[in-house]
């Protein structure tokens, strides 16, 4: 990633980290107070170390924010035009397609009780390869053959050879 874009991302990340660390600090302090309410010593509390970590995380987030600002990043880049360009960029499209495919496999196909592991894996593999491959007959046949072989190997390797109950 280009340094200019990296620092913009750092600026956003630093804000997320600051919010996250404040949230963590609040929850950790509540754990410490609960320990004290039970008349236990402060140093036994489950919240003690998270308090320390959240403080350091907040300090690091501030340092990241300052570095990003020092290198010229600001919030002016958050415009409708830039957001549109980002969403329409090929990298974003490819990344979100793959993330979507994996999400469909994990949360959509595998939990279906009547659809066996081998079928859901074949659908995932062939779908994945088909989307990114050329759409001619040779490539489609290759996709199907490789998907079948990979599915059989995964099912046999984990289900039979390693004797692991498949999802």
């Amino acid at each position: 990633m280009e340094k200019k874009f990296m620092r913009r991302a750092d600026l956003i990340t630093s804000i997320i980290l600051m919010i996250g660390s404040i949230g963590m600090f609040a929850m950790s302090i509540r754990l410490v107070l609960r320990t004290l309410e039970k008349n236990r010593d402060w140093y036994q509390s489950a919240g003690l170390f998270p308090v320390i970590v959240s403080v350091f995380l907040f300090l690091c987030a501030i340092s990241l924010y300052r570095t990003a600002k020092r290198d010229g990043a600001n919030f002016k880049f958050i415009t409708l035009e830039n957001t549109k360009n980002f969403i329409l960029s090929s990298e974003f499209k490819i990344a979100s397609t793959i993330i979507g495919l994996i999400a469909v496999y994990i949360f959509g196909l595998l939990p279906i009780k009547w659809l066996k592991y081998e079928y859901s894996t074949f659908i995932f593999l062939s779908g994945f390869m088909f989307i990114f491959n050329k759409k001619d007959v040779k490539s489609i046949v290759k996709t199907i053959i490789i998907s079948v072989i990979a599915t059989v190997m995964l099912t046999y390797g984990f289900g039979q050879l390693a004797m692991i109950p498949l999802p």
Binding site: I102, Y105, I106, L110, L125, F128, N133, A150, L154, P165
Partner: peptide, 23 residues
């Protein structure tokens, strides 16, 4: 990579499941 990486993704899923048998 068009053929290799989807297999790596499927292997990652079953590899992670095999350890705790947990969705």
């Amino acid at each position: 990579k068009i053929y290799l990486m989807p297999i790596v993704a499927a292997l990652s899923v079953i590899g992670a499941y095999a350890i705790g048998l947990s969705m």
